[in-house]
Design a protein around this nucleic acid. Sequence first.
DNA 1: TACAACAATTGTCTAAGTACACATTACGGA
DNA 2: TCCGTAATGTGTACTTAGACAATTGTTGTA
Lengths: 157, 157
Amino acid sequence: MDVLTAADARAADATLAASRALLGVVARSVVATLDVVSLPQFRVLVVLSSAGPTRMGTVAERMGVIPSTFSRFIDRMVAGGWVERAASPDSRREVLLELTASGRRLVDDVTEHRRADISAILSTMTPDQQSSLQHALQAFADAAGEPQAADLLTLGL
Amino acid sequence: MDVLTAADARAADATLAASRALLGVVARSVVATLDVVSLPQFRVLVVLSSAGPTRMGTVAERMGVIPSTFSRFIDRMVAGGWVERAASPDSRREVLLELTASGRRLVDDVTEHRRADISAILSTMTPDQQSSLQHALQAFADAAGEPQAADLLTLGL
DNA sequence: TACAACAATTGTCTAAGTACACATTACGGA
DNA sequence: TCCGTAATGTGTACTTAGACAATTGTTGTA
């Protein structure tokens, strides 16, 4: 390992350590929902929230489970009132999955919770700090590119 | 909404976007392990990795499960070769839990994976950007205070 | 119009994760 | 030394998650 790589590793460590607080915010927002839905269930809500009504098989595939498992998994979510099965306009053998009002509200609440937490923290920083944070994070997000949806999905994010 | 609030919203948005990128990194590192250990099991490894050998009851409490549940849960992890029960030097009725070499390696691999990902992202940024990112995150961390370990743990962080 | 392929569900089974009640062993103070 | 309490483990039962096989209903095509 040459000098540059070692320095890189230190910088990466420092960045990860500093980012822990940010991760804490996200974790808290999700953890708050775990009383009402499990993490896998929340993942489904997130998928439907971003993709809109989606075929059973498609969501099952995204979740990485086989359709039979998924069907009964969805039974529970329907019973809980988070999602609904709906007829597909394309084909009568397809079943679309969509969020109920409760399901949508849950996802929105998590996002809102997260944003409020972040705002609260930002409000204790000076305008200068806020501005430089904004630019630095923007650069980071650009450098990172879009995260793989499948990866985020695993953690329900 | 006045000007200040709009600026706040922009900073909050940038922070949310960055948190998403960051989560992508973290999630990807954890996802890679889920073939061999479940998320609850990985959480135990994380606890032991940071706290060292720890009493059964203490870890059970951190995991939020009752001791009887935890005992059999640990049976499975012992069978998997990830942790070991060890006699406590303090008291013969206490049982310490510690990582095996495999367990430690698994956690280390995840950490290393995560560090490498961050390094890769940082390497596409200018040194100036890297430095300001680190300082900005540090400022955020200072403003946020210590994240609740329990929240992070839920996601295996 | 048959028939093969497809989408979802149901039948059956296994294992993980969880709780509650109880048993076992070990400590520690009266 | 005795006895209450603490730490862990067992017996039992339930839910969730997952797989594979078989079934039902639908589509599309030879």
